[in-house]
Design a protein around this nucleic acid. Structure first.
Lengths: 119, 119
DNA sequence: AATAATATATGGCTATGTCATATATTGGCT
DNA sequence: AGCCAATATATGACATAGCCATATATTATT
């Protein structure tokens, strides 16, 4: 029944749903990357605050590819397991720009309501 | 089947899921308020950027009350439809503090990843 | 040989916002 | 009086997307 809410754990989980796409698109902006790389990068750069479960990450990559925002290709190298590298498409770049603006507006809106109510 | 994604509409929608609790707890910090008041306040203070559907708002209030974070009571006044006013409980204040910290960390984490990737 | 790290994959679960719709009251307009 | 907008709360069915658990396979380390 899932009875225990740790409060901020709950917040984190739900917030991630909205930011996952923006994170991935951002990381693919300058260079193609494979899934595992994206996952570890998010964890490292956020200093462990954000961690994506692989069961969220790979399905999300498939969705983004299906929508035409990213494009993947298999790369096989000797001495390495095969990897699927994703690059940002033209459409993806457009969406990234939109989502960056949207994110900024969202943060401002939340802060305007939650930051020191009386003010 | 929901086939069309407008990009940033998607981001907005999902992000709201994680911030709804924080918004409501924040608005109840200084004074008790009823549901409809909370809904309109969120819309006004965010200058229309955030708008909560009533079908999200009321069930959320019931959940928060069930968890003991807020406490509601009916108020009936002549010349007014009855309203249910919610106030923040001691537990709710604790959670609000946690969620504020969590929100700040979250924004920092996202910005550290999405803000100008090369840097 | 055993274990850890790398790398991708998926079925079932859960949480929560949305759409659509419903009920009631109050106030303003014509 | 009749109509409609705003106020105020309520709920069933649906969609989305991250999580848990588990699986497979390759490479590196002990």
């Amino acid at each position: 029944m899932a009875m225990s809410y740790i409060g901020s754990r709950m917040l984190d989980r739900e917030l991630k749903k909205g930011s996952a796409e923006l994170l991935i698109l951002s990381l693919l902006e300058t260079q193609p990357r494979h899934g595992y790389d994206i996952g570890t990068l998010i964890e490292q750069r956020s200093k462990g605050h954000l961690r994506f479960n692989v069961a969220s990450l790979y399905p999300l990559l498939y969705r983004l590819e299906k929508r035409g925002w990213i494009q993947g290709r298999w790369v096989e190298k000797s001495g390495q397991r095969r990897r699927r590298y994703y690059r940002l498409t033209a459409e993806g770049k457009k969406i990234l720009k939109e989502q960056r603006n949207s994110w900024r507006e969202f943060v401002e809106a939340i802060n305007s309501i939650t930051g020191l109510e009386h003010a």
